[in-house]
């Protein structure tokens, strides 16, 4: 009957729409989060990359191990402190400790419902604490803004 057919079509189309609407992209964060500080290691008085044989990084003042690397390490990613405008890390090469202090200003940015808020860093400042024997010879600040993970922000010569 005509009415039966209409009802059948309507019911099937409703079920189809229900089914299709279920195929939605998962609402999880697409990875847009607070960027890390990117460091690359170079040879002093040279422009070629020089990797670290071993590198051990500790965050101050927590004494938490950030990196405990044993292979050739060419880059380092440091997650800066988003709770304060400064943080410090101790980079240990072999037996030699070198302390780096970072100062910056934080900018809070809303990303999305699933990613929440992230922080962009501006006016970055690096201080190397001088002691008798620094294995870090020179630090180059390539940019004072940390907005993305995909570029290197600091070059360290050793």
């Amino acid at each position: 009957m005509k009415k039966n057919q209409i009802q059948l079509i309507l019911s099937i189309s409703i079920l189809a729409i229900l089914g299709i609407s279920a195929c939605r992209k998962d609402d999880i964060c697409n990875g847009d989060a607070t960027p890390d500080l990117k460091i690359k290691f170079f040879a002093y008085n040279d422009t070629i990359e020089k990797s670290m044989d071993t590198l051990f990084v500790i965050a101050l003042p927590l004494q938490d191990t950030v990196i405990n690397g044993n292979q050739n390490i060419t880059d380092l990613s440091l997650a800066l402190n988003v709770n304060e405008d400064a943080c410090g890390f101790v980079l240990i090469s072999g037996q030699n400790n070198d302390t780096l202090l970072f100062h910056y200003s934080r900018e809070k940015v809303f990303v999305s419902k699933s990613c929440g808020y992230k922080v962009n860093f501006h006016n970055l400042n690096v201080d190397l604490q001088q002691d008798n024997d620094n294995w870090i010879k020179q630090i180059d600040l390539l940019t004072t803004d940390i907005v993305t993970d995909s570029v290197t922000h600091i070059n360290i010569y050793h």
Partner: peptide, 14 residues
């Protein structure tokens, strides 16, 4: 309240 999204954070966002 909100917490900053920072994967791999050492200083846990408060």
């Amino acid at each position: 309240t909100y917490r900053i999204n920072q994967p791999g954070a050492v200083f846990t966002p408060a």
